[in-house]
Amino acid sequence: MNRVRTVAVIGGGIAGPVAALALRKAGIEATVYESHPTTADGVGGTIAIAPNGMAALDIVGAAAPAAAASWPVHRQVMTVGRKRLELPGLPDAGPLHVINRSDLYRILAANAPIEYGKRLVTAVSRQDGIAAAFADGEEIQADILIGADGVHSTVRSLIDPAAPGPHFTGMLALEGHSPMSVPEEAGTMVFAFGKRGFYLYGPALGGGTTIGINLPHRPLTIAEARAIPRPQWKDTLLEIYGEDSPGGDLIRQLPAEDLTVNGALHIMPPVPRWHRGRMVLTGDAVHAPSNSSGQGASLAIESAIELAQCLRDIPDVTEAFSTYERLRRIRVEKVAARAARTNSVKAPGPIGKALMPIIMRAFMKFAMNPEKVIGPEQRYRIDWAKTL
């Protein structure tokens, strides 16, 4: 079978452009098709990239600009009421890098060919390639198609109409910059379990405090969430977090207009079929762990690069896809399982409160042996020079 020469990548978030950059590095022509009509300049909140994710970004030349646009987190703390637990990390592995999502998009898009306003309608695998059609009427052909189109993936349903969809975690994501300062050293992130919900915070560059909130709420699309006035969201946050310290004061001092509404938080259950014919999934379209993992973006970056490596080295498409799935499935599902054990107490309620002692013991286990718990995650490195 002829080696893959052209690739259509669906989705211009993180995994899609990374896949295109890695494919081009491998000598394969790749174009990204993004459904939104414009770039995401200034849109969205922040994400954390773990050391393994930064190492993967380095393969496609994006680590240095991403580091320059981010702020490093060297220290992590968990609080439950007045209880405070220092979470030892892996100092020699490097820090987490917190970056505005739109800044990462901009960095990746600088060198990845992206066409905007291209919403995929259908795609058909043929013996010699893929034929895809978009809502604007354009039709394209390529050797293969990669679905990097997020948790609500169209490509996933084309590969397997019976594929599971994303599960709502019961929380919405909001964040903002409060002018209030907290007594934490720079580079610290605090994970706080309040009386009725979870939030995190840390000193912001230039002063004040960045606060991220996982608000227990009914499901809303991002459009529905952003249609609600931000002053109303602030009132809702104070109802849930107003009695927490320092969460209540951080929110009270946060100007409503500076509140960013990021919408519902979803996770992906295990997806039975990662590929079919000449279509394959990567990133959140096939594995989106809870944000409790701290690995969502990093795993997406890794998978996009390892998929490109398989296509570079294995001429047969089916074998390349199968090898990619074998390399990735166990890793991503193990991370997702770890994060799921934490997620149940972010929106406490009676069950979550009952589980809190169990979660505390789990965190103590982590504190005693971070190398065993997160070492395999953060020390993972892709050997791009290796031929598979």
Rank of each mutant, 00 (worst) to 15 (best):
K83D: 15
D41N: 01
A93R: 14
T31G: 04
E29V: 10
L85W: 09
G45M: 03
H97R: 15
V98S: 03
Q76F: 10
A30K: 01
A30F: 04
P17K: 07
S70L: 01
V80H: 09
T38Q: 07
Q76I: 07
A68L: 04
G45Q: 02
T79I: 09
T38G: 01
A50E: 14
W71Y: 14
T79C: 12
V73F: 07
A22N: 08
I28S: 10
G44Q: 01
A69W: 10
A93C: 13
A63G: 06
L23I: 07
L57Q: 09
L90K: 06
N100D: 04
R75H: 07
A26C: 00
A56C: 06
A50V: 07
S70N: 13
W71K: 13
Q76W: 00
R84P: 02
D58K: 13
A30I: 05
G94R: 14
P91E: 12
A62M: 07
G45W: 03
R24E: 11
A56H: 06
T31I: 14
L57T: 06
L96F: 14
G61F: 02
V32E: 03
G42R: 01
G44L: 08
P37E: 02
L21M: 07
I49Y: 08
V98C: 07
I28F: 12
I59P: 02
N52F: 10
V18Y: 04
I49V: 10
D92E: 15
H74C: 08
R82Q: 15
L96S: 12
A56Y: 02
A19S: 13
N100E: 11
H74V: 04
L96K: 06
T31W: 11
P88Q: 09
G16P: 03
D41P: 00
Q76D: 03
N100Y: 08
G61N: 12
R24I: 03
V98I: 10
H36R: 07
V77F: 07
A55S: 13
K83V: 15
S70H: 12
V73H: 10
S70G: 14
V18W: 08
A66Y: 03
L23A: 09
A66M: 10
E34Q: 02
A19Y: 06
P17D: 07
A30S: 00
A56S: 12
G94V: 09
H97N: 14
A22H: 09
H74M: 11
N52Y: 13
V18A: 11
K83S: 15
R75M: 05
L23G: 09
H36P: 00
E86K: 06
P17V: 13
V32A: 09
G44E: 01
A69M: 11
S35P: 04
R24Y: 02
M78A: 15
V77K: 05
A40C: 02
I99E: 13
A22K: 03
L90C: 08
K83W: 15
V98E: 01
D58T: 02
D41T: 10
S70I: 05
A22L: 12
L96G: 00
T39Y: 02
L21Q: 06
A93V: 12
A48N: 12
L57I: 01
G27W: 07
G27M: 05
V98M: 05
A93D: 15
A50Y: 05
A55I: 02
Y33V: 05
M54S: 04
P72N: 14
V32Y: 05
V32F: 04
R82I: 14
A93S: 15
V73G: 11
S70M: 04
K83M: 15
D41H: 04
G61V: 00
A26E: 01
N100H: 13
A64M: 02
V32N: 04
G81R: 14
